[in-house]
Simulated scan of single mutants.
Amino acid sequence: MKRLAVYCGSATPADPRYIELAREVGTSLAGQGIGVVYGGGRLGLMGAIAGAARAAGGDVIGVIPEALVSREVANYDCDLTIVATMHERKAAFTRLSDGFLVLPGGVGTMDELWEAVSWAQLGYHGKPVGILNAFGFYDGLLEFNRHMAEVGFVRPAHQGIIMAERELDLLLTRMRAHEPITPIVKMNPDTL
């Protein structure tokens, strides 16, 4: 893995652990030679991960929609690409990265996570999707994902798309060992 798209919040929660987590992840990825592709802002967890990765000598690529350049205070201290739409932003994340690493975040982070999972199911990419479940932040989401599978809305072949761990190194080890799943487009229609 040379680059990971890192999805995380542009907000700064009151609990300082979240910003510290983002800094630790940025520093660790840079130390392992893994570049960061992220949302291109200087605020919140996004800004913390980018700043820490750059400070540790890492490669940081920001991709931000034109409409958010001033709203999210675009980070010009990275290789910044300004695109027209959110769709272009997410397509760039997929094109530029070797996988997806999800840290705590809000609605935008959820949108990015579920698109990465959906695109894997459909066969638009065969890259790993990892959730860093720090502080149990994603416990409810992971339980909901299990519920969708139990009910039958996530096919057995796709139940392993999301990898989740509480420790970054363990998650990265799993992501490096990732084997692409059989996407829907390659499945027998009679078994769908």
Rank of each mutant, 00 (worst) to 15 (best):
H158C: 06
A53S: 14
L113P: 00
D79T: 13
Q159A: 11
Y18F: 14
I161Y: 02
L132E: 02
L80R: 08
D59N: 15
L103E: 00
E165V: 04
P156K: 08
Q159W: 00
E143V: 12
N145Y: 11
H125M: 08
M175Q: 06
F153H: 07
A134T: 08
E66R: 13
A14E: 14
M1P: 09
V60P: 00
M46W: 05
Y38R: 04
G47F: 03
G9C: 08
T85P: 05
Y138C: 03
N145I: 14
T81G: 07
A56D: 06
D79V: 10
L168T: 08
V83H: 06
V83P: 00
F93V: 04
G140P: 06
G26Q: 05
V25Y: 03
A14V: 13
L122S: 13
L132T: 02
R166F: 09
V151Q: 06
A50L: 09
V37R: 02
G136V: 07
V25K: 01
D15A: 09
M46D: 04
I61F: 07
I61H: 00
G106N: 08
E167M: 14
L141Q: 10
V107N: 11
L170P: 07
A48Y: 03
R42C: 12
L4W: 03
S118Y: 06
V154S: 01
D77A: 11
S97K: 02
A134F: 10
V185P: 03
V154I: 15
L96N: 05
M46I: 10
I162C: 00
L122Q: 15
H87M: 13
R89W: 06
P183T: 07
I184C: 04
M187Q: 12
A177K: 11
R42H: 15
T191Q: 14
M187V: 05
F137C: 07
L171W: 02
G39W: 02
D15I: 10
A177Q: 12
V154D: 00
L192M: 13
M187A: 10
R3T: 04
E165P: 03
V107M: 12
T191R: 12
R3A: 05
H158W: 11
N75K: 10
L103W: 01
V36H: 06
P65L: 08
P13N: 11
G106Y: 04
R95A: 14
V69A: 14
H178I: 08
A52Q: 04
I61M: 11
I19C: 09
A92K: 11
V117H: 02
R54I: 14
V83S: 07
Y124T: 07
G51M: 10
E24M: 14
